[in-house]
């Protein structure tokens, strides 16, 4: 398959287009601005729409409007911008509108920095906005995987009528790698609920207000049943040298990639180290952790311990869980090696 050398941001944008996304609403913010830039170049030439919103608040509501018509739509931003979108994301989840939201994480809280980070994990996986809901959150660790996951994300969103987040980081957005785009036929999902004008059918309504308490609970139960189904059927995880591993590193995204290098070095030194890499951070791959709960764990993140809590929950209180985190700074594989060696001593 032909390979193209491009940045992660561009690869994600192209993957979305290949998956049938023709409408993009966004707002510039480092380190993801290449996604709107790419979309503004490509979409108008193929009969699609790129629109720069006045704010992330408006962008996510434009997405709400566009997703409500049943179109395949996407927006992208980075941490502070994603915070601004939380209101709209909550409404999108409540209205059960399929769409894709890309978060190329940078350091926080506040303005933070523009360096890579993983400190939006809680926000991404636990709901983020108000109310009872979850996003499906996909965390690629290479650009090629970002392409695959983005291409699949639209089908997932349609299948469950639930928004999907691609959770990357500034490193992934900015780095360049050769990637290929597999031929994809977007799955066609009938969307009888979409707003397209009430012609030859009763009027449709995209709503989130349920003033009657029982009606609200009934609606939330539908969302929750969807979430339970997603938990059961959509978990994706990679295990790497875990069979004989005495120490297992748990990491996702860019950090997992760095951890793989560390594991190679450690294995050459004779240390039995493996990796569990959640690809879906929601739904979280609890089961594989349960199965390997007798090993020792080192969770590594570009945060001060957010996925750590899901790992601890999955392993139970008796498990041996250690943590190494950097925030604002990308941990090097040397640092991970040192942390593992500390556990062996």
């Amino acid at each position: 398959m032909e390979k193209t050398f491009m940045t992660g941001n561009e690869a994600i944008a192209e993957a979305a287009i290949q998956a049938g996304c023709r409408h993009f609403f966004g707002y510039p913010i480092t380190p993801q601005s290449e996604i709107p830039e790419y979309m503004s170049k490509r979409l108008p030439k193929m009969g699609g729409v790129y629109l720069q919103a006045e704010s992330e608040v408006a962008a996510i509501n434009m997405l709400f409007g566009a997703a409500g018509t049943g179109a395949r739509v996407m927006t992208s931003s980075s941490s502070p911008g994603i915070s601004l979108m939380q209101e709209g994301i909550s409404y999108i989840a409540a209205a059960r509108l399929p769409c894709v939201i890309v978060n190329i994480m940078r350091g926080g809280p506040g303005l933070g920095g523009i360096q890579p980070s993983q400190s939006d994990y809680f926000q991404a996986t636990k709901g983020g906005g108000h109310g009872d809901y979850h996003l499906i959150v996909l965390a690629p660790h290479t650009l090629q995987e970002a392409v695959y996951l983005t291409m699949n994300s639209f089908d997932l969103a349609d299948k469950y009528r639930n928004p999907v987040m691609i959770l990357g980081d500034g490193y992934m957005g900015q780095m360049m790698e050769p990637v290929s785009f597999p031929k994809l036929t977007p799955r066609h999902t009938p969307k009888g609920w979409a707003l397209t004008g009430a012609k030859d059918r009763p009027a449709n309504l995209v709503k989130t207000l349920y003033l009657d308490p029982e009606a609200l609970e009934k609606h939330n139960l539908v969302i929750n049943q969807t979430i339970q189904k997603i938990k059961k059927e959509e978990v994706q995880v990679e295990t790497y040298h875990t069979d004989d591993a005495e120490i297992i590193i748990a990491a996702y995204g860019t950090v997992a990639r760095i951890a793989k290098t560390a594991i190679e070095v450690l294995r050459n030194k004779g240390l039995k180290v493996g990796l569990i890499r959640p690809i879906t951070v929601f739904p979280f791959p609890c089961k594989i952790f349960e199965e390997l709960a007798d090993r020792r764990f080192l969770v590594v993140e570009m945060s001060f311990g957010q996925m750590l809590e899901d790992v601890q929950l999955s392993l139970g209180r008796k498990a041996s869980v250690h943590f190494y985190g950097r925030t604002g700074v990308v941990p090097s594989y040397d640092e991970i090696i040192v942390e593992v060696e500390k556990l062996v001593k």
Binding site: F64, G88, L205
Partner: peptide, 17 residues
Amino acid sequence: DMYEAAHGRAPAVATGC
């Protein structure tokens, strides 16, 4: 066919549609 929008966001929702 109608949307119910968040407070103040109707013009953005209408734009998307």
